[in-house]
Design a binder for these strands. Structure first.
Lengths: 138, 138
DNA sequence: TATTGTTATACTCTATAACTATA
DNA sequence: TATAGTTATAGAGTATAACAATA
C-alpha cells in the first residue's frame, strides 16, 4: 500500500485492515459488525424507529429486521410500539445491551489504539478530522 | 458521522463517500471498481502472473478470471504464457489499457481533490500517511 | 505430489416486490 | 393514498471443490 495510491484505495486498505483486526473482538463478544453498528447507533442518540435507525446507519430496512431479531433474542434490544404511531416500533438498548456495547467498544478502541501506535497526536487528530470531513462531504 | 466515532466507522464512512463519488466516473469509462483496481496494479509494477496479481489486490483468484476476461475482451490487457512456467499466464496492459487507466486515474484524482477541498496541505499529508500506516499495520 | 489457471457449484449478502396494519 | 414493518424472492457478490495442464 503506497502513499501515492488513490485516496479511495488507501481508505479501503485501512478500513479492511481495521475490520480484520476487529473481527475477532466482535466474534468473542458474539456480535456481527452490523449488529455492533446498531448497538453503537442506539447508544448514541434518541431511541429511533426501525426506519429511522436503518437510515441512520445506511442499512436496508428489510435487512435490519433479521438483525434486530437476533439482537432482541439475545436480550440486547427491545422493540416497543410507538404510542404516537402504532405502525412504528421504537428500538431501545436493554441494560444488558448497554453493558455489552460498552464492553465491545472498549475492546474495539484498544485494537484501534494498537493500530495507531507510532502516530503522533497531531497526526491522529488530523486523521480523524479529515476522515470525518470526507465522510460528510457527500 | 461524528469525530467521536470508532475509527473503523470513520474509515468506512469516508470510503463509502469516496466510492459513491467515483462510481459515476468509472461508469463513464466503462469500468467496474475492481477492473480499475486491476489496471492500477498493472500500471504500477512488473507484469505479474494471475495468481500474483490476485494476491496483490487481495482478490480471489477464481473471480479474477472473469474480471480479466472482460478486460481482455475490451482490449485493455493481454494474457500470455510465461516462458519460464507454462502453467502461468502473464498479465500486461495493452497501449489502450495504459491510456484508459491514465484517463480514469486523472478523473478519479479530480474527484478526490474535490472532496479534499477545505483541508490544508498538512492535514492532507497526515491523512495519506496515517491511512498508509493503518493499511500496512496488518 | 504440488501448483496455475479454469469451471462448476454452493453460499452469503444485498436489493426488489408484495403483503398487513395502521395513518 | 401513503407509510412502517414484515416476508418472500431474485440477484449480485463471494467462497469452495474439483479438474486439466504443467512443474
Amino acid at each position: 500500500m503506497n502513499e501515492d495510491d488513490d485516496l479511495g484505495a488507501l481508505c479501503a486498505g485501512a478500513g479492511r485492515a481495521l475490520a480484520e483486526a476487529e473481527r475477532p473482538v466482535l466474534e468473542r463478544h458474539g456480535l456481527s459488525m452490523w449488529q455492533y453498528v446498531v448497538l453503537s447507533a442506539l447508544a448514541d442518540g434518541e431511541a429511533p424507529s426501525q426506519l429511522v435507525l436503518a437510515r441512520q446507519i445506511r442499512y436496508d430496512k428489510t435487512r435490519l429486521i433479521t438483525l434486530l431479531d437476533g439482537l432482541e433474542a439475545a436480550g440486547l434490544v427491545t422493540r416497543d410500539p410507538d404510542p404516537a404511531d402504532r405502525r412504528a416500533r421504537i428500538v431501545r438498548l436493554t441494560p444488558e445491551g448497554v453493558r455489552r456495547h460498552a464492553a465491545v467498544r472498549t475492546a474495539i478502541r484498544e485494537v484501534e489504539e494498537d493500530r495507531l501506535a507510532g502516530l503522533d497526536p497531531a497526526t491522529r487528530r488530523a486523521l480523524r478530522s479529515a476522515l470525518a470531513h470526507l465522510a460528510n462531504s457527500g
